[in-house]
Design a protein around this nucleic acid. Structure first.
Length: 174
DNA sequence: GGGAGGATGGAT
DNA sequence: TCCATCCTCCCA
């Protein structure tokens, strides 16, 4: 039986490390009918702080990014390209804006597809990741480095050569 | 109030 | 390579 990962698990300032460690953990969703779906996280990206030009919060504190400045372990869900909901977990201490984008889980490739398949949308935005909110995380095996690939993040070329090239994306090797 | 552009994905 | 589709944010 998996243990629930409490929100405070993610208040470390080392968001990049947390993104790496989230691989292999379980994302759990309770559907409307009470059934719980559990999927293994296979791809993540770190968005780390006010200096990270790919991080939404680097453009300042706004209504949308406010949640990233709050306590760790809350969901940041936003709409991109007018149609895809992106699921992120807020990390870091209070007032340090950072988050981890959950890009894929086992059997579902792509951040837009996974939210659609699991029924995750902006209703979850700002909610703490706990079972009472029907969307939470559970522990799983730690993956050895040999099973993990680090690459630059997807679709953030606008962030400039430094930030767009950093190996902040983590993928479980097949 | 207007307009540009986006942490995607599916079709062409 | 194109583009659907709409929210966010900046500018006026």
């Amino acid at each position: 039986m998996s243990r629930v990962l409490r929100p405070e698990t993610f208040n470390s300032r080392q968001t990049v490390r947390l993104a790496r460690e989230l691989l292999g953990k379980t994302l759990a969703v309770e559907q409307e009918n009470g059934k719980v779906s559990r999927v293994r996280i296979t791809e993540t990206e770190a968005y780390d702080g006010p200096d990270d030009l790919a991080c939404h919060a680097s453009k300042g504190r706004t209504a949308r990014t406010e949640v990233m400045f709050g306590p760790a372990g809350r969901w940041y869900v936003y709409l991109i390209y007018g149609m895809h909901e992106m699921l992120n977990l807020v990390t870091g201490p209070q007032d340090y804006p950072a988050a981890i984008l959950i890009r894929a889980v086992e059997g579902i490739s792509g951040p837009g597809r996974l939210t659609k398949r699991l029924g995750v949308d902006r209703r979850f935005n700002t909610l703490p990741a706990v079972p009472e909110n029907a969307l939470w995380l559970e522990s799983g095996p730690s993956l050895p480095d040999a099973h993990v690939e680090a690459t630059p993040r997807v679709g953030v070329g606008y962030a400039g050569p430094d930030w767009s090239q950093r190996p902040y994306r983590f993928v479980v090797k097949k």
